[in-house]
């Protein structure tokens, strides 16, 4: 069946197999490189469409990099500007919290120009399935309660009711809910910084 092992043929075969395997992987990598990038862009675009009112420009091309905390100007968040007929109809703010239960998670928050939340969408997370992962359930009360709230005029206390705030937490997922509030607060800060800088 198999041939007898000698140092020469062992080294030779192993080297050839490794070379062949790496070459094959490299080819597939170069072929799938663009589709992978396209899939990532498509995901961002879909999230933008969900969170801001209808627009007719390409928000992925109109990106602002705005810091949430003006003391730390290097840590910027991406802000996608949605326009219809040249007029700004909304801003989609990408915001990442480091306080998630299973690690950091990233959400996209859509604001209308007056600072009211239009809609939100979760981009990536690693929360517990069935518990914290409910942040992805778009029809749940936890997600819909944000819509229509103005986060910039100070009318909403951005923490869960357990901590004395105005937000109903997800049952049995207080940590994830707090993290979501944190992400919303970052997004709100980013939004206020756009209006003062780039409007």
């Amino acid at each position: 069946m198999a041939i007898k092992s000698s140092l020469r043929n062992m080294v030779l075969v192993l080297t050839l197999v490794c070379l062949g395997a790496s070459a094959a992987v490299a080819v597939i990598y170069s072929v799938t490189k663009d589709p992978i990038a396209a899939a990532a862009t498509a995901k961002t675009n879909k999230a933008i469409e969900e969170v801001v009112p209808a627009f007719d420009n390409n928000p992925s091309e109109e990106v602002l990099n705005i810091a949430a905390d003006l003391q730390k100007p290097d840590e910027t968040n991406k802000v996608y500007v949605a326009k219809k007929g040249g007029e700004v109809v909304g801003y989609a703010v990408e915001s990442t919290t480091k306080k998630g239960f299973g690690g950091p998670f990233t959400i996209m928050v859509g604001f209308t120009p007056d600072g009211t939340v239009y809609n939100t969408s979760v981009l990536s997370h690693s929360e517990t399935p069935g518990l914290g992962a409910k942040i992805t359930d778009k029809s749940s009360h936890f997600i819909t309660q944000w819509n229509g709230k103005n986060l910039t005029d100070g009318s909403v206390n951005l923490s869960v009711k357990k901590d004395g705030g105005d937000i109903d937490a997800i049952t049995a997922s207080t940590i994830s809910s707090r993290a979501f509030c944190d992400a919303m607060e970052i997004a709100a800060n980013v939004f206020s910084n756009i209006t003062s800088e780039n409007k």
Binding site: M1, A2, I3, K4, S5, M10, L14, V17
Partner: peptide
Amino acid sequence: LAPVIPNKVRIPC
């Protein structure tokens, strides 16, 4: 590939 792989390095291959 089995017929051309020496016995001793088959697992790594």
